[in-house]
């Protein structure tokens, strides 16, 4: 499994030892929910990232199971090939741009460039919204072409895969919107406070891009 490296000792213990003013062994920050200053972001980031990575592993299993079922079900004689929807290429482009913008926001945040971070962060979210709208258009086009949810297993899989992927992205956008509130309001110095949210969102975005590329690849090339 792909877990980030961890130290055997409690990361926060080390913190306490290098001059944390909160008193001997002050166990502040042990609760990952508590919102302390930037001092505490490193261990919190490691823990939150570990949690997100585990979730990505689980989500990977979900999509791999669906794609295996897709490959298996495709051998049925009733399988028909879906019309090629050009808009999917456009949507793919949106998602690539979205992921790239999130990555850029993440890097600028690390450098402490608040203006740049804000710009790319908002742009990343906007492209994600465009992707989702584009997916809705793709659904409409497919539906008009005569493929409803239950018309054919190929369209059933298409709707199911895109819905599950879209719901993940939608959940990501909710997290993004929640983080945006604090990022937009932030004074320059406190960028580190939102660092975790930016890191996690970027990671999730890249994952969803990979998942989409896999889904798109199967739909386009393995049909």
């Amino acid at each position: 499994m792909n877990l980030p490296a961890h130290t055997p000792t409690h990361p926060r213990m080390e913190e306490a030892s290098h001059g944390n003013s909160r008193g001997p062994g002050g166990p502040d920050g042990w609760n990952s929910n508590s919102d302390h200053g930037g001092d505490h972001d490193q261990p919190r980031l490691a823990t939150a990232k570990a949690g997100l990575w585990l979730f990505l592993v689980t989500a990977t299993v979900v999509f791999s199971m669906l794609l295996s079922a897709y490959v298996e079900r495709k051998t049925g004689t009733d399988w028909s090939i879906l019309p090629r929807l050009g808009i999917l290429w456009l949507n793919t482009g949106f998602l690539v741009l979205s992921s790239a913008a999130m990555e850029w926001a993440r890097r600028l945040a690390r450098r402490g460039d608040l203006q740049g971070t804000r710009f790319w962060w908002l742009l990343g979210g906007a492209f994600a919204v465009l992707f989702l709208l584009g997916q809705l258009l793709a659904w409409q086009a497919l539906y008009i072409a005569g493929y409803g949810l239950s018309s054919n297993p190929s369209s059933s899989f298409f709707y199911l895969l895109t819905t599950l992927h879209g719901l993940h992205l939608l959940a990501g956008l909710i997290a993004w919107g929640w983080a945006t509130v604090s990022i937009v309001r932030l004074p320059e110095t406190a960028l580190a406070k939102s660092g975790i949210k930016i890191e996690l969102c970027a990671l999730f975005w890249h994952f969803l891009l990979l998942v989409w590329l896999a889904i798109f690849g199967f739909i386009w090339f393995v049909s």
């Binding site: 000792t9 409690h10 990361p11 261990p43 490691a46 823990t47 570990a50 949690g51 585990l54």
Partner: peptide, 8 residues
């Protein structure tokens, strides 16, 4: 899993 990995 995260707790066992990170909070020992």
């Amino acid at each position: 899993v995260t707790t066992v990995l990170q909070l020992r």
